[in-house]
Amino acid sequence: MADQLTEEQIAEFKEAFSLFDKDGDGTITTKELGTVMRSLGQNPTEAELQDMINEVDADGNGTIDFPEFLTMMARKMKDTDSEEEIREAFRVFDKDGNGYISAAELRHVMTNLGEKLTDEEVDEMIREADIDGDGQVNYEEFVQMMTAK
């Protein structure tokens, strides 16, 4: 299944994987998964984290390695993001709930994920998604960005 991913997608997933893999040992533990999910405003229980890991832990060693992570991402993409997942993601970014993602809100979430971005990089990300040019990202623009192939 992971063989249907483009090189660009694999590179993006590698970057995402390293955000989860806090200690850089090449595997994601339940603790690391929990840290990232909490930084995104989720509050999973230990059991939920274990279930999430077990779902993709092909070799049964209790952690997720990069090939397992790729399989999980490929699977998720095949079920292409349901509207509800996209709306949920939008809410994570839209901290003040005004229906727009500002540069400050984007920077806040990315920083929580451990991504240190310059102001230019954040502005560039907003510009790429900002179709109507108002300097922020509304829900429609967010959907376009998330579903762009």
Rank of each mutant, 00 (worst) to 15 (best):
A2H: 05
D3R: 15
D3Q: 15
L5T: 14
L5G: 06
F13H: 01
F13T: 00
K14T: 08
K14V: 01
K14Y: 03
E15C: 04
S18Y: 09
L19I: 05
F20W: 14
K22G: 03
D23S: 00
G24R: 10
G24F: 10
D25F: 15
D25I: 06
G26H: 03
T29V: 15
K31A: 07
E32A: 14
E32Y: 01
T35L: 05
T35R: 09
L40Q: 14
L40N: 15
L40A: 15
Q42D: 01
N43H: 14
E46V: 11
A47R: 11
A47W: 09
E48Y: 11
L49E: 15
L49Y: 15
L49A: 14
Q50T: 05
I53A: 15
V56K: 15
V56Q: 13
G60D: 14
G60Y: 10
N61P: 06
T63G: 11
I64M: 10
I64E: 05
D65C: 15
D65K: 07
F66L: 13
P67V: 10
P67T: 11
L70A: 07
L70C: 04
T71S: 06
M72E: 02
M73L: 09
R75I: 12
R75V: 00
K76P: 14
K78A: 04
K78F: 00
K78P: 00
K78R: 12
K78I: 12
T80V: 06
D81R: 12
E85C: 07
I86P: 10
I86T: 12
R87C: 11
E88G: 10
F90W: 15
R91Q: 09
V92S: 05
G99D: 13
G99P: 00
I101N: 01
S102P: 07
A103M: 15
A103F: 02
A104V: 10
A104S: 10
E105D: 11
E105V: 13
L106I: 14
H108V: 12
L113S: 08
L113F: 11
G114N: 14
E115I: 01
V122T: 15
V122G: 12
D123S: 11
I126V: 12
I126P: 00
I126K: 00
R127Y: 04
A129Y: 03
I131A: 09
G133I: 01
D134A: 05
G135P: 08
G135W: 03
V137Q: 05
N138Y: 14
E141G: 12
E141K: 06
F142L: 06
F142W: 05
V143R: 15
M145A: 12
T147A: 12
